[in-house]
Amino acid sequence: MRYINTGEYQFKLTHAPAAVFTTLEKMYGTAQSADTEKPVDFEISLKFDSLIRRFIKPQVTFFSGDTSPFKPLPISQSYPVLEWGMNWCIAAYEFNKLIIHAAVAVKNQQAIIFPATPGSGKSTLSAYLALSGWHLYSDEMAIIDPISITVSPLLRPVCLKNQSINLIKAWFSNASFSKTTHDTQKGSVAHLKVHTPNSYQNLHQANIKAIVFPKYDANKNILEIAELSKLEGFRKLSANAFNYNILALKAFNTVKQIIETTSQFNIAYNNLKDVNDFLTEDIIV
């Protein structure tokens, strides 16, 4: 058993294969006593599927309480399944905040939101920025308060896939990674530590400065930037808000306020340094 304090949400992991606890120690650090006093939002576990499956090709199932949202997966995928399960808990039960499928990077207390579909290079971009002086609030979901229109930090590792694992390892040799898991539904995945409990302590809810829709394109020589119309910005941002349908009017008003107070861009890039320069020089003040 251990607590996983992600800041906004407190998890308690009751059962899991031993290797998962080792990886958690590496990604989240040792659970502090302050963490254990915090009330638990989600009680989660990874359990063996059936008696036979415990011995032949063992599989694990993720549980949030008594609920298992995913099909059982091979035991080798335990750690990614745990991280995805934690994402599921937030996505399935959080209806106080607007949640956007997006990475969030913050500098000088100003947040940039990167909504994107899988394959757009969002997590590579997240990892790069997190290791280049930005605070990464999330690589997967922007948690937005509908009243203050601010985004909350999550203490979570970044999930990297396929070639980007080796790229980030090559660029940042000191980076702390989990073991790579092969043959998941997303291909090979590895998690990258980007926070310590201490560094996380200094992060606060941040105002949103811009919405940037990234697209990695190997054929581009230069960074292409196109500012979006408000209408297009609204359409693209709301399409990535996965509890939009539940929050309904509140979601509409939240997205409207974000669009009115930020600028929105499409960018197509080949070089992450160009992206960093653009964000740092032209967007953050």
């Binding site: 009330p39 939002d41 039960y93 209806f95 106080n96 539940i246 929050l247 309904a248």
Partner: peptide, 19 residues
């Protein structure tokens, strides 16, 4: 606060279903 947060989230979901 802890409990209110979850109760309110459940309320938001139920209100939407009722609509």
């Amino acid at each position: 606060t802890f409990a209110f947060k979850h109760l309110h989230s459940g309320k938001a979901y139920a209100d939407r279903q009722k609509a």
